[in-house]
Amino acid sequence: EQIEAIAKFDYMGRSPRELSFKKGASLLLYHRASEDWWEGRHNGVDGLIPHQYIVVQD
């Protein structure tokens, strides 16, 4: 089940696996990879999304 999230802040990925996005961006989350990271998608690209930078939608 995919979960929708909105970016709270701009984020610049620090490795090829991390996604970069702007504040207000819509993100799709697949699952929680760790306490700090989600596996997800932004603009058709899959990668890691930092939990602290997003708001998960109910």
Rank of each mutant, 00 (worst) to 15 (best):
E1V: 09
E1R: 08
E1T: 07
Q2G: 14
Q2N: 10
E4D: 10
E4T: 07
A5E: 02
I6A: 05
K8G: 08
K8D: 07
K8T: 07
F9K: 12
F9N: 15
F9G: 11
F9M: 15
F9V: 14
D10Y: 03
D10W: 03
Y11W: 08
Y11F: 03
M12V: 10
M12Q: 12
M12I: 12
M12Y: 05
R14N: 13
S15D: 15
R17V: 07
R17N: 15
E18A: 05
L19C: 14
S20E: 05
S20Q: 05
F21Q: 01
K22Y: 14
K22M: 11
K23H: 05
K23N: 04
A25K: 09
L27A: 01
L27R: 01
L28F: 08
L28R: 10
L29Y: 01
Y30C: 09
Y30S: 12
H31A: 10
H31R: 13
R32P: 06
A33Y: 08
A33Q: 15
A33D: 05
A33N: 15
S34V: 04
S34R: 10
S34G: 11
E35Q: 09
E35A: 14
E35V: 09
E35Y: 10
D36C: 10
D36R: 08
W37F: 03
W37R: 03
W38D: 00
W38A: 01
W38L: 01
E39D: 08
E39W: 09
G40D: 00
R41W: 10
H42D: 03
H42P: 00
N43P: 01
N43G: 13
G44F: 08
G44R: 09
G44N: 07
G44D: 11
G44M: 08
V45N: 07
V45L: 14
D46S: 04
G47R: 02
G47T: 02
G47L: 00
L48F: 08
L48W: 06
L48M: 12
L48C: 09
P50L: 05
P50S: 06
H51I: 04
H51T: 06
Q52E: 13
Y53P: 04
Y53R: 07
I54S: 02
V55E: 14
V56E: 15
V56Q: 11
V56G: 09
Q57T: 09
D58A: 07
